[in-house]
Structure formats: structure tokens, C-alpha cells
């Protein structure tokens, strides 16, 4: 008797579970359509042939005469290859040098006692709320009058060599390293530089990876400052080049769409391969 009573509700719970699961998948799919649809539409537009409509009337979502001709046209009329190379050089150089500079600075903030440590640290933290656009006015004047790197990609790398946010994140990572390890290094007679490079850096590799990704994506997608600095086509990064392309191909929706796809694909590939580090980088940033 008891057994049958216990058994009867089971199928009901199971069907309820199935319905719940289906419900959640529908919700998830609807949201996915909202977040991804513009990209799908841009990709299909970029593949449309001259006979396919890109206008409101007649409305056509999928290309009936798919072609890569739009990509070829954009590639031939603009130095897209240069845009790619410039973007990659800027992003990679920034990541490598920024990580070097900020991890050097993070070490004393995390593990050394010295005069003015807290004062300097809080001064740096306070600059976090300064709108970057404010700093671009004097930075622009410096670029033209002092550093003479106007219209060169050096102008994008140089000011990004150290960022307060990255110092802050790496300081958190170094703080988690046990002091015993550092003391052991000091007893063995290792220099502070040696301790930093051979003991601390290998231990915070995951944090370095996330900081690298955040820095790379920020630099890759940056527009305001690059648009102020870069004017010669061949020296542009992808973002600045894409805006130039949009102006040049104003009446060519298919060409602009092809340009958008070319700009987004590299960062999407990076995201798919390093998805876990992306997410960890975010959560780490908030805990800090």
C-alpha cells in the first residue's frame, strides 16, 4: 500500500521536470535569438549576391546567390590586411609590455613594506574613476608636440603600457602567494627580481592569462584614442579602418557587412578557444 502511494506521484514529477526543462530551453533560445540575431543577419547579408535584396522591400533573410565577392571587393579597395597586422601588433605588444610593467609594480604593492606604499596605491586607485576621454586632451597634445608619434601605431601602444586596473588585479594575485615561499627565496640569496620572475610569476599564471585576455580585447576593440591618432589608411587598426570602410561603402550594405564580419571573426575565434579564461577573468575582477 505504502509502496504504491509512493510510486504514483513519480511519473507526474518526471513529466513536470520534462516540461520545466523544455520551458527553460525555450527561454534560453529566445534570449539567444535576441543576442545573436544581428550577427547572423550581418553574416547572411555579407554573403548576398547582387540579385539578393538587402532592402526592406522585398525582405529577404538568406542569400539565394551566395558569394564571397563582397569580401573580395572590400579586401581589394581597402588595405584590410594592414588593418589586421596593425591590430595584432598593437594588441600583442600592449599585452606583453603591459603585463611586464604591471606585474613588476604589483609585486611591491602586494609583498613589500615601504614608505608611501598605501598613499601611492590609493592615488592610483582614485584615478580609476577619471574618464579616459579627459586624459586624451593632454595626451593628444603630447603625441603631437612631445612624442611625435601622431599617425603611428606606437601612439596606441605607448600610453597603454601600464594600467591601474591590471596592477590592482595582479596585486590581488600576488597577495595570495604564501610569504614563506618568498622568504625561502630570500634566505637562498635570490634577488627580488629573481623572486618575482622565478617564484611569483609562475604561481600567478592563471591571473596573468586573464589579465592578458582582458587587455587584448580592450585594446583590440578600442576606438576613441586610435581614431584620434591614425589618419593614413595603411596605418589604421581594424576598428578605425572599419569606420573608414563604412564611410567609403556608404551605399554598399553588403560590403559594410563583410567588413563587420572580418573585424569580429578574429576576436570570436579567440573567445571560443579561451572561453574559460574569459569567464574566470570577469569573476576574478569582481572579487578583487
Amino acid at each position: 500500500m505504502n509502496r504504491t502511494q509512493a510510486k504514483t506521484p513519480r511519473p507526474r514529477i518526471r513529466t513536470r521536470r520534462v516540461f520545466e526543462t523544455i520551458f527553460w530551453y525555450i527561454v534560453l533560445c529566445v534570449i539567444a535569438v535576441v543576442t545573436v540575431f544581428p550577427f547572423v543577419w550581418v553574416i547572411t547579408t555579407s554573403l548576398k549576391g547582387p540579385q539578393d535584396s538587402v532592402a526592406a522591400i522585398p525582405l529577404q533573410l538568406l542569400p539565394q546567390h551566395p558569394t564571397f565577392a563582397n569580401y573580395v571587393r572590400v579586401w581589394n579597395q581597402l588595405p584590410v590586411g594592414n588593418f589586421f597586422i596593425n591590430s595584432i601588433v598593437v594588441a600583442v605588444a600592449t599585452v606583453v609590455l603591459n603585463l611586464l610593467f604591471t606585474s613588476l609594480a604589483a609585486y611591491p604593492f602586494a609583498k613589500m613594506n615601504f614608505r608611501g606604499r598605501d598613499a601611492i596605491f590609493y592615488l592610483l586607485l582614485a584615478t580609476f574613476i577619471v574618464p579616459p576621454q579627459l586624459t586624451y586632451i593632454p595626451s593628444f597634445i603630447l603625441a603631437v608636440n612631445v612624442f611625435h608619434y601622431y599617425d603611428s601605431i606606437i601612439a596606441l601602444i605607448f600610453p597603454s603600457l601600464a594600467t591601474v586596473f591590471n596592477i590592482f588585479l595582479l596585486r590581488q594575485a600576488f597577495k595570495a602567494v604564501p610569504n614563506d615561499l618568498i622568504d625561502a627565496g630570500r634566505i637562498d640569496g635570490a634577488s627580488e627580481l629573481r623572486i618575482w620572475w622565478s617564484i611569483l610569476m609562475p604561481l600567478v599564471k592563471p591571473s596573468l592569462a586573464t589579465v592578458a585576455i582582458i587587455t587584448f580585447v580592450n585594446q583590440w576593440n578600442d576606438f576613441f584614442w586610435p581614431s584620434l591618432m591614425l589618419h593614413t589608411r595603411e596605418r589604421m587598426t581594424l576598428q578605425v579602418g572599419l569606420v573608414a570602410l563604412q564611410g567609403m561603402f556608404a551605399s554598399d550594405t553588403r560590403g559594410v557587412a563583410a567588413g563587420v564580419v572580418m573585424t569580429v571573426i578574429p576576436i570570436l575565434i579567440l573567445f571560443v578557444t579561451l572561453q574559460r579564461q574569459f569567464v574566470r577573468g570577469l569573476t576574478g575582477a569582481v572579487k578583487g
Binding site: T35, V36, P38, F39, W41, V42, V217, W220, N221, F223, Q239, L242, V243, Q246, V256, A257, G259, V260, T263, V264, I267, L268, F271, F278
Partner: peptide
């Protein structure tokens, strides 16, 4: 995806 695609590409789309 919209977060990492960059505001320029997204804005133009």
C-alpha cells in the same frame, strides 16, 4: 558574443 565584438562592429550592424 555582443560584449566582445566591440562597439564599432556592433554599432554598424
Amino acid at each position: 558574443i555582443p560584449v566582445i565584438s566591440g562597439s564599432i562592429a556592433v554599432g554598424i550592424s
